[in-house]
Design a protein around this nucleic acid. Structure first.
Length: 492
RNA sequence: GGUCACGUGGCCGAGCGGUUAGGCACUGGUCUGCAAAACCAGCUACAGCGGUUCGAAUCCGCUCGUGACCUCCA
């Protein structure tokens, strides 16, 4: 096991802190998952690639992690405000009638795309619809303790009561007084059931249109959207656990409310480390449904979106995401994606070259420095861009050795392979993409074609050799001549 | 209106007071029948204006710009 000197940025303290789990080597991590009411988009990709990086690095460090990620299948499925009621209403009644059909479909799509991005699945993926009794129980406890009140069949969390003994707003840096002013300025609609505008729902009485309903002591209704996360995280990770993650846009109110609920109920700290990833912009603009510039993962992989010049493979997308830090915004553009694609291919190409290198007596480069730099980068709040920069140092070295301009000892060759294996595959989670078929028949046929071209070249019949190369190029097969012979590769 | 981030070379993106980030693109060179790939070399920025400091992209202030959030919206 590598020495653990991991530093993480904790939103709670707004500082980088040494990571010290409660019960090493065990680590409990909860990350807010998707609400499965639509297909996963680039924003999901960035978020879950980011936490996959974190998960993978913790695994790499030797921690035993229980990773919990919810799949929200409750409460928000009546209709979509941005889309307007018409569109939903005009869609088949079948689609609206059974929300669990939608859940199944979009959940399948979610896993399809996340799997393609080589994102490891969570240890447990709990769904709030399966944890209604636990949520009701938690709400009841909050009522009993005086932190919540019932009004017309709905139950609300009393933020002022909580704030008198706790600090509501400690995660997002807000305080109740400011929020009162802000609320006054914005003249929010009067929420008659609530004692205060910033109180939030624990249980909502369902109206007729609401299609998912459960019985509770207060009404037939559905749980509020914050309670699922505090209940399910604590059920599987304990009252206090190590890491809670999610998108920065959820820090307030969602995560703030989770903390309030959980700490009100248990009187103990909820999560010790709060990690938040930043968002995606498209051509410098926010990605949003209302702007009509959203890009679904699937569209990215197929190129089927007007904003895309072409398709980008899942690993290109993953590499692109990892080239920026998880806490930075990432600007999406075709130019940037294409740059990532080329860089990724160069990286993977060098890896293949590495397998063919012959050892020399000694090395003209310090391999261990690359490995150490990668470790240092990851230990500093998961700085994947720096890891990648260091792997490119390795690429340069590999190619130099191949060109006979540098040399590497047997041990160093093995060490470099190990470094690439550890960081490129295990930590960054990149993998070789199978492009096109390379079965035996194809290989044999290509061998034949290449040998014919070789003969032509030897006879200086360049018209024929170039024709072969050009025609192959039209099949997306590229031919590279070198002193050691000719290589070919097929780009799907 | 409030709270909080951010603004880096043609593009994307690290950087947390003093040292070349890196990738892509571009230019020149090597190699090649020509390409491609690869290697070598070049391009060397930090929104603007002040301030602190021996020294600032990095700290402070102001201005401009962008973004997130501000409670039933995921």
């Amino acid at each position: 096991m590598e020495e653990k000197k991991l530093i993480v940025y904790n939103t709670l303290s707004r500082k980088k802190e040494k990571f010290e789990p409660l019960n090493p080597p065990h680590v409990g991590m909860y990350v807010c998952g998707p609400t499965v009411y639509g297909d996963p988009h680039l924003g999901h990709a960035k978020s879950y690639v980011s936490f996959d990086l974190i998960y993978r690095y913790l695994l790499y460090l030797g921690y035993k992690i229980r990773y919990v990620q919810n799949i929200t299948d409750v409460g928000h499925l009546t209709d979509d405000a941005d889309q307007g009621e018409d569109k939903i209403a005009k869609q088949s009644t079948l689609e609206q009638a059974e929300p669990m059909e939608l859940v199944e479909r979009y959940m399948a799509n979610y896993y399809r795309d996340m799997d393609a991005l080589n994102i490891l699945r969570a240890s447990i993926a709990p769904r709030p619809s399966g944890h209604i009794p636990e949520q009701i129980e938690s709400i009841q406890k909050l009522i009993d303790k005086g932190f919540a009140y019932e009004a017309n069949g709905s139950v609300y969390f009393d933020v002022l009561v909580y704030n008198s003994s706790n600090n509501y707003g400690k995660l997002s840096g807000r305080n109740v007084e400011e929020m009162e002013e802000g609320a006054a300025n914005r003249e929010l609609e009067k929420q008659s059931d609530k004692r205060n505008p910033f109180d939030f729902a624990l249980w909502k009485k369902a109206n007729e249109e609401h299609i998912m309903q459960w019985k509770s002591p207060w009404s037939v209704g559905y749980p509020g959207w914050h309670i699922e996360c505090s209940v399910m995280s604590q059920k599987y990770l304990g009252e206090t656990f190590d890491i809670h993650g999610g998108g920065i846009e959820n820090a307030f109110p969602h995560h703030e409310c989770e903390i309030a609920q959980a700490e009100a109920e248990t009187g103990k700290p909820f999560a010790n480390y709060w990690l938040h990833n930043n968002m995606v912009t498209i051509n410098g603009q926010k990605m949003g449904k209302s702007l009509g510039n959203g890009v679904f993962c699937d569209e990215l992989f197929t190129g089927d979106n007007p904003q895309l010049d072409k398709a980008y493979s899942p690993m290109t997308v993953r590499f692109f995401i990892l080239q920026s830090h998880y806490r930075s915004t990432l600007d999406f553009s075709n130019e940037a994606l294409e740059a990532a694609e080329k860089g990724y291919k160069r990286l993977m190409g060098a890896l293949k070259t590495l397998e063919t290198l012959q050892p020399a007596r000694d090395s003209s480069f310090d391999i261990n420095q690359i490995r150490q730099n990668c470790l240092d980068a990851m230990n500093d709040d998961f700085n994947s861009p720096i890891v990648i920069a260091n792997l490119f140092e390795g690429v340069k070295l590999i190619n130099s050795v191949k060109d006979g301009k540098a040399q590497m000892s047997k041990d160093d060759l093995a060490a470099l392979r190990q470094t690439f294996n550890d960081f490129l595959f295990d930590v960054l989670g990149l993998k070789e993409e199978k492009t096109g078929q390379s079965d035996k028949l194809t290989n044999d046929l290509m061998g034949l074609v290449i040998s014919i071209r070789k003969e032509a070249r030897e006879n200086k019949d360049f018209a024929t050799s170039d024709k072969i190369r050009d025609e192959l190029s039209r099949l997306n097969i590229s031919v590279k001549d070198s002193k050691d012979g000719t290589n070919w590769s097929h780009d799907g």
